[in-house]
Design a protein around this nucleic acid. Structure first.
Lengths: 352, 352
DNA sequence: CTACTAACGCAACAGCGTTGCTAAAGTCCG
DNA sequence: CGGACTTTAGCAACGCTGTTGCGTTAGTAG
């Protein structure tokens, strides 16, 4: 039954509008989506029955019958996101709107095993959402990993993590849908989910235990053929430059880390970002990561300056440069929103 | 009526299969697409009525009723592609399978005007496809341009080309649908159209009056927010390197063009390609462009070597490196296939 | 000739958005 | 106050998509 795809697609479209605007109503949704008002009525009815949106009074036009107004019900759905770093497990509870409503941090033993992580995850999830019905759990961590199967191929500098089917293991343990993804990809999903449509081509640049880029292209996550996209820090910006941990010379990350001070590092990053813009023509650059946010405004202004001045860029090449609104919770929150996005975001034609 | 989207989507899926394989049949299509055999029957019937596919005998299984076999009818649809360079207008006629069936080259006057191009285009199109019903005409050229509206913003080093609504002008003159796009984007479309599914994430690297990359991400063209993606040659690979025409220092293009010989140039390009792979995790790299193909095998082997050795890349990170099968016709042929892709490729949800 | 297998295809069906029309809830104006 | 007008809402019938159910067809095997 492939009609379900149309239904899910239009419901996701309406939910996205409701996320981005304080209220929605039949007429404006019909205009934006291209559906007829009658069709929108049916969609809205279904969403109200599902509890995802609720009536919120009326708007009185200058003339004619008042229009029914609806709003998103953020408390109708919940998801938990986990950020696994080498030292700690950070958990956040987010609502349907993408707001972080609770959080907790658990330390992880040095060189922790999959079992140790699963134990922490199990305890943390029940503690964070007692009795609440969860859509699922998302896990964001460093790669390389295979997002499609939820398998960690071999997390950098963690001994016990080779070909671990983390999504399956955690799913069985928690009894919930579990998605595993690279930290940068999760983080960019958080930005996209909170901004709604209009955020079509973007990169989230993260400086935190490495330098990476989460890519949001054409209104969806870009993960690449082997779900390994985003190794932006290991692109060469200085031929025959300093040796990088990856074995090449002059990687963006290597040059960036050797900079004299934050301002110089930010300038290097700016050049890398302009490289990305030249190749991908993005509309938004979001800056994130604990190491970057420590000098957030220095980085933001440096990147913005690079974007504006490094190339004689025409006035129609507008790019927004911003710091993430989620701070250091971007990864965990993004992992949670991957779950929400999988269930309530635009459906994938190939998966239906 | 949004049901039309489902219909178009499934028809496009079947056409894509028919392009990639010599023959198709009901059962295998059903498996691949996830549709029921009955639904596939209906799709096949519609396509046969449209003349896009035709019965091609039967396949006799070991047991049971023979299965009806179908094949694409390449001669059922035609499109013309134009490659506009600074000196000449190259036109090709392609069939539904993406094969070039006729071609012609017309010289263009120095610093030609829009009217002069339109005249050449009009004469060429009628000469190339006398009496044949055409799906449309595609035009590939250097940017910057706005693909969405088909407007040339200001072609590099052409005086009379500022904010010219080329698609509209040509469409009125020819009485056919006209699409305008950047040369690299057109070229990558050609590769994708001829290969069918399985070609999900790829870049076409072109060296010809500049250095650019056409991007095919997630099974569709990536053009970016301002339809200006692909300026790959103007990414910095050598901080404080030689001055580039674009004003920055150490652009890939600048370093590449200053190399001592083709082998050295190819090695530089190889580093750039690895940068692209690190960021985007592509499955295919296609090399094209007149200047590159002049030393095709040197470039191909150098890029392949870079991909295999520059990073300790894991064995699961497989990448195919190949020269375009269309030679110097890649741009013109790709422009033609953009027209076919728009009409018979996977439909765009937002456009329906 | 009968049993079995695999593909085919007609007919009824479910569910999506659309169309056509009527009703409802306001304002405006005489 | 009441009728004309405007805008929104919603019921009912419809068209079209893919699905389901089941009988038919064209082969092989014994």
């Amino acid at each position: 039954m492939h009609l379900a795809y149309l239904r899910d697609y239009h419901e996701a479209l309406v939910i996205a509008l409701a996320r981005a605007q304080p209220t929605i109503e039949r007429g404006t949704v019909a205009e934006v989506t291209g559906l007829t008002p009658q069709a929108v009525s049916k969609v809205l009815t279904r969403l109200v029955e599902g509890g995802l949106i609720a009536p919120a009074g009326v708007r009185r036009p200058a003339l004619g019958k008042p229009a029914a107004v609806y709003r998103l019900v953020p408390e109708s759905r919940w998801a938990i996101g986990a950020h696994v770093s080498r030292k700690a497990l950070r958990l956040v509870l987010t609502d349907l709107a993408g707001a972080v409503r609770a959080s907790a941090t658990t330390p992880l033993p040095a060189d922790f095993t999959p079992d140790e992580l699963l134990a922490g995850l199990g305890a943390g999830v029940t503690a964070l959402a007692p009795g609440r019905e969860l859509t699922g759990v998302g896990i964001g961590m460093i790669g390389p990993l295979d997002q499609a199967t939820g398998t960690v191929r071999g997390a950098h500098r963690l001994r016990h993590w080779h070909d671990v089917p983390l999504a399956d293991l955690a799913g069985k343990r928690l009894g919930l849908p579990v998605l595993v993804d690279k930290d940068v990809t999760a983080a960019v999903t958080a930005e996209a989910w909170r901004r709604g449509a209009g955020f079509r081509d973007a990169a989230l640049i993260m400086v935190e235990s490495g330098l990476g880029a989460g890519l949001w292209l054409g209104g969806a996550v870009h993960r690449g053929t082997h779900t390994n996209a985003g190794e932006f820090g290991h692109t060469v910006v200085q031929l025959d430059g300093p040796l990088c941990v990856c074995g090449r010379r002059g990687c963006l990350e290597a040059v960036h880390d050797r900079a004299a001070d934050p301002a110089a590092a930010a300038a290097v990053l700016g050049t890398g970002v302009v490289n990305l813009l030249q190749t991908l023509d993005l509309g938004h650059i979001v800056l994130a990561g604990a190491d970057l946010l420590r000098h957030g405004e220095i980085y933001r202004s440096a990147v913005e300056r690079a974007v504006r001045t490094e190339v004689p860029r025409a006035d129609w090449l507008t790019v927004e440069v911003a710091l993430t609104g989620l701070g250091t919770d971007a990864i965990a929150a993004g992992a949670a929103m991957q779950v929400l996005n999988a269930r309530y975001g635009l459906p994938d034609p190939t998966g239906a």
